[in-house]
Design a protein around this nucleic acid. Sequence first.
DNA 1: TTAAGTGCAAATTATTTGCAGTAAG
DNA 2: CTTACTGCAAATAATTTGCACTTAA
Lengths: 139, 139
Amino acid sequence: MATVQEKNLGLTWLENSGLRPTRQRVAIAAHLVGDGQHRHVTAESLYADVCKAGESISLATIYNTLRAFCDAGLVQEVTVDGARSYFDTNTHDHPHFYWEEDHRLSDAPLEELEISALPSAPAGTEIASVDVIIRLRRT
Amino acid sequence: MATVQEKNLGLTWLENSGLRPTRQRVAIAAHLVGDGQHRHVTAESLYADVCKAGESISLATIYNTLRAFCDAGLVQEVTVDGARSYFDTNTHDHPHFYWEEDHRLSDAPLEELEISALPSAPAGTEIASVDVIIRLRRT
DNA sequence: TTAAGTGCAAATTATTTGCAGTAAG
DNA sequence: CTTACTGCAAATAATTTGCACTTAA
């Protein structure tokens, strides 16, 4: 079960979004931002977390909630692997490490990435964002 | 139907892979590399192409063949969109444009990309590859 | 001749949706 | 009270697989 502080942090975070803070959303928010750290979850991994903590939320609601958070700009979807979607609580444009063996995603330090030249957008288009994913394998 | 030249190009390409050049694979290869250009296909888009050309190949074989080509290093899988997989006949590490409206993937000019600093791989890991996807939206 | 490849249809996986019930403002 | 949210179960979409049949070597 999430602590009171975790719930409060999650609640504050939710309130800036216009989404109704229901029991389920507050619980999910507590799991996502409760400790002030950024997190990278899949629907399934979050569901497992929430269940392990003794909260009861249906998987469909996890999916719907992640989608709602994403639409509200609270989290960002990251596609790496084709099969599953990751949701990142860090919504700034930043690079990711992808641990191929573990199917795990984590932040890479933004300050260590420097792109000195970028292909320019073709006529009639603009760059919406640049995804940088650094794939890691164990040595 | 693919021309003789297209088939020959595809055949040559196939032969360097150890894969048995069956009727279906030669046809697919002709569609992929027949004109010497790089291509970015999904299983469905390739299936549509092949059907339109009057060749008859089952969708399952398209999937299996793309997977086999991928394992053989003839094409490379690119993940952008979560839902579908793209296969790229350009197997060198290079950046991509992703046209968000059209769900279309294309090569971005490699020589216009310059990464002057990259986060270093965490201890016990090495960088397998770096995916750079430039998301475009129409202006 | 024989192991690899093909093509259905059924299975799997990740995700979404319809809809009746529940709860927040 | 009213509208948004939740949770099941069924639907969907992309992809894989089991298995009998075909074909390249």
